[in-house]
Amino acid sequence: MLAELSPALIAEVELATKLLKSKQRICVLTGAGISAESGIPTFRDKQTGLWENYGVEDLATPDAFIRDPKLVWSWYQWRRQVVADKKPNPAHDALAQWQYHAQSSNQQVTLITQNVDDLHEQASSTVTHLHGNLWCNRCSQCERPYPNQARNSYSGENALSFDETLMTCEHCDGYIRPDIVWFGEALPVDEWQAAENAATNCEVFISIGTSSLVYPAAGLSQLAKQNGAKVIEINPDPTPNTLVDITLAEKAGIILPLLIQEITSL
Results as ranks from 00 to 15, higher is better:
residue 129 H to L: 09
residue 70 K to T: 12
residue 135 W to H: 14
residue 57 E to T: 10
residue 81 Q to H: 09
residue 151 R to Q: 13
residue 120 H to F: 03
residue 93 D to H: 13
residue 180 I to L: 13
residue 160 L to R: 15
residue 210 T to G: 07
residue 196 E to D: 03
residue 255 I to F: 01
residue 30 T to D: 03
residue 80 R to W: 03
residue 222 Q to M: 10
residue 92 H to A: 04
residue 139 C to I: 08
residue 231 V to S: 00
residue 74 S to V: 03
residue 142 C to W: 07
residue 247 T to G: 00
residue 241 N to S: 11
residue 133 N to M: 12
residue 139 C to M: 07
residue 7 P to L: 08
residue 49 G to Q: 09
residue 55 G to D: 12
residue 259 L to R: 04
residue 192 W to M: 15
residue 169 C to W: 10
residue 148 N to I: 03
residue 178 P to R: 10
residue 12 E to T: 08
residue 217 A to D: 00
residue 52 E to N: 13
residue 166 L to F: 11
residue 113 T to H: 08
residue 228 G to D: 02
residue 3 A to H: 06
residue 144 R to M: 12
residue 251 K to L: 10
residue 136 C to I: 04
residue 129 H to T: 10
residue 62 P to Q: 07
residue 168 T to I: 12
residue 46 K to P: 07
residue 141 Q to K: 11
residue 57 E to V: 08
residue 198 A to I: 10
residue 245 D to C: 01
residue 91 A to C: 02
residue 172 C to Q: 02
residue 123 A to I: 04
residue 204 V to D: 08
residue 156 G to M: 05
residue 122 Q to D: 15
residue 76 Y to K: 12
residue 220 L to A: 05
residue 169 C to Y: 09
residue 135 W to M: 14
residue 209 G to Q: 07
residue 21 K to P: 02
residue 203 E to G: 02
residue 4 E to S: 14
residue 115 N to L: 09
residue 60 A to N: 10
residue 133 N to V: 13
residue 2 L to V: 06
residue 71 L to R: 15
residue 8 A to I: 07
residue 148 N to Q: 14
residue 167 M to K: 15
residue 79 R to M: 12
residue 115 N to Y: 08
residue 40 I to K: 01
residue 21 K to F: 06
residue 29 L to G: 06
residue 145 P to M: 11
residue 2 L to D: 11
residue 27 C to G: 05
residue 197 N to T: 15
residue 18 K to I: 09
residue 75 W to H: 12
residue 185 E to N: 05
residue 177 R to D: 00
residue 105 S to H: 10
residue 193 Q to P: 02
residue 152 N to A: 08
residue 92 H to E: 04
residue 225 K to S: 02
residue 252 A to P: 06
residue 201 N to M: 05
residue 32 A to W: 03
residue 9 L to Q: 11
residue 246 I to E: 01
residue 129 H to Y: 15
residue 101 H to K: 11
residue 85 D to A: 14
residue 5 L to G: 07
residue 75 W to Q: 00
residue 149 Q to D: 15
residue 143 E to H: 12
residue 187 L to K: 12
residue 136 C to P: 00
residue 206 I to E: 11
